[in-house]
Nucleic acid binder design. Structure first.
Lengths: 131, 131
DNA sequence: CGGTATCCACTACGATACTG
DNA sequence: CAGTATCGTAGTGGATACCG
């Protein structure tokens, strides 16, 4: 609180917002969330991931895994056998990410129906104006 | 827990993952988070938002606000004065969104240093390989 | 003031082909 | 099996100009 009528400083001040945005751009994209989700169930091989994540291309799987590895969220282990066996697993830090992701999941489940409703209502209102 | 060595069913099963992804694609993008962050401090006018969100274009501000309004997360109030005065505010549902966003913010603050470290280490390791 | 409309650059991504 | 390399395209978003 301060003496003026103005706001208190919250977590949503500009600077703080930017780091969330920065994070979201790295971990909040479609494929990254899917990969983290898949790996949250345990270690997986490249092809397993590809099969378990519907619609992902080799290119995107590779890029996504590289990004996660670069950020220290996923560990890559190569078993130098023939044929090669490469396993991916969440690092301890990577595992902690599932918690806020789960918070988002809960929020989603709780509010998705209302949002879908809102969208229908919005569409209806727009249609009324147009037609 | 179940009898097999396999996983228990978690929030990260494919289907559930998809709704999180779907949500993220609507509320997880750069500008949406910035707008929600700005509005978490209270009602704001269009131009105020534009000034407070660094680098946003009119186009994106308008599109983002429309999206949020469509989803029932932001309410738009037009005061038919001259010059016009349009105010945006988070709906009750919109305000609940700040909570999981805050969880993400906390995670970010906690793990960002480690991630930056990891990235440096990764870059160094890559450089060593290349020569 | 609070937008809309148009254009255009950039990039993200899928498809495809090839490799150790 | 686990990738890399290349290409074409569709969508994203900034810049600019204009409107009620």
């Amino acid at each position: 609180m301060n003496a003026t009528h103005k706001r208190v400083r919250t977590a949503h001040e500009k600077e703080n917002c930017k780091v969330v945005v920065e994070m979201l751009s790295r971990i909040g994209d479609k494929w990254t969330v899917m990969v983290v989700g898949a790996l949250s169930e345990g270690t997986m091989r490249y092809t397993e991931l590809q099969r378990s994540i519907d619609g992902i291309s080799q290119r995107m799987l590779t890029l996504t895994l590289k990004g996660l590895e670069e950020d220290g969220l996923v560990a890559r282990t190569v078993h130098p056998t023939i044929p090669p066996r490469v396993e991916y697993t969440l690092t301890p830090m990577g595992r902690t990410l599932t918690k806020p992701l789960f918070a988002l999941y809960q929020w989603t489940m709780e509010h998705r129906p209302a949002m879908l409703e809102a969208r229908k209502a919005y569409a209806k209102a727009a249609a009324k104006k147009t037609g």
